[in-house]
Simulated assay, not measured.
Amino acid sequence: MAFNLKGRHLLTLADYTPKEIEYLIDSAIEFKRLKNAGVFPKNLQNKNIALIFEKPSTRTRCAFVVAAIDEGAHPEYLGKNDIQIGKKESIADTAKVLGRMFDGIQFRGFHHETVEELAAHAGVPVWNGLTDSYHPTQILADFMTVKEEFGHLRGIRFAYVGDGRNNMANSLMIGAAKLGMDFRIVAPASLYPEAAVQERCQAFAAASGASITLTDKVDEGVADADVIYTDVWASMGEEDQIPARIALLKPYQVNAKMMEQTGNPNCIFLHCLPSFHDDRTQLAQTYPDILEVTDEVFSGPASRVFDEAENRMHTIKAVMVATLA
């Protein structure tokens, strides 16, 4: 079933119905099939896409650029030093100018209020490529990967382990609550999501039949899990907190023992990337205990992290086509 999403923003998956989210995922699976077959429908011919990046990115930038070009659109990268947003020109004025020139706007940055203000004034679809609060395009790729693996999303036992109050934990909980999953956040109680986010997700869960569990006990949280998911222990801009986070989160490192604790030989591992899983980065050399996942798991047979990374491109293509074409 097709849904008319033309003109819609994507700021958080909380704004989309379960059927709309599944439609975007299924569309992405079809776009992946078409691309692998060498078929490019060019649904976005003559469209122009503005890509605003306050925060640098590998996957988000490349996924938007390749997806846009595949579909016939022109993407324009606007880094933090390329435009005057919030410095010499207000967010609202920037949105109005870009909305007159571009057909869609992606924003990746810090404050969620910025992408909300862009959406309020642009007059064209605005997509959240990441803010401090939410990362909806990543969750679409995550759930696409899960559906490719298991064939369904409802009832999937999904354990997010580590820093439970960041944008990934918030967004995964929203998506899982919408789609009827058995979702667990496994984290120290001091790093649970904000109460308001929890309450909102419990309401979504009541409507979908999902369950949401927050626990600081690893064995309880990962039991029977189909998916183990983690993220870095200190997000961009939190580097000064790394030593404290290591001390707090070391018991939550994803390793072979944790994967065994699931009791599920078919459990897969996911990560939004980038990841500290070996000593080949500057920060890992400075802080050897920063590894939120061991390389044994990250590079092992349960890992689907690079399928997941590729799926950013297909899901972003689905979002752009659905809201623009």
Rank of each mutant, 00 (worst) to 15 (best):
N4R: 11
K6G: 03
K6F: 05
L10D: 03
L13H: 00
A14V: 06
Y16P: 01
Y16E: 02
E22D: 14
S27M: 14
F31M: 13
R33P: 08
L34E: 14
F40K: 15
L51C: 11
P56Q: 11
F64H: 02
V65C: 13
A67I: 07
G72Y: 06
A73Q: 03
P75T: 13
P75R: 10
Y77R: 07
I83G: 05
Q84W: 09
I85A: 01
E89G: 12
A92E: 15
A92P: 03
V97F: 11
V97W: 09
Q106D: 11
Q106T: 06
F110N: 06
H112N: 12
V115E: 01
A122L: 10
G123V: 05
P125W: 01
V126T: 03
W127S: 05
H135W: 04
H135C: 02
L140A: 05
M144W: 08
T145E: 05
E148C: 11
E149H: 10
L153G: 03
R154K: 15
R157V: 12
G164D: 01
R165Y: 02
R165P: 00
N166C: 07
S171F: 00
A176P: 02
G180F: 00
F183G: 00
A189I: 10
A196M: 06
A205W: 00
A206E: 13
L214F: 15
K217A: 15
V222H: 02
I228A: 05
Y229F: 14
T230V: 04
E239A: 11
A244N: 12
A244G: 10
A247E: 15
K250I: 11
A256D: 15
G263S: 12
N264W: 08
P265L: 10
N266R: 14
N266E: 14
I268D: 00
F269E: 03
L273I: 09
H277T: 06
D279S: 12
L283Q: 10
T286I: 08
L291S: 10
S299E: 15
R304I: 07
E308R: 07
A309S: 13
R312M: 07
M313C: 10
T315A: 11
T323V: 10
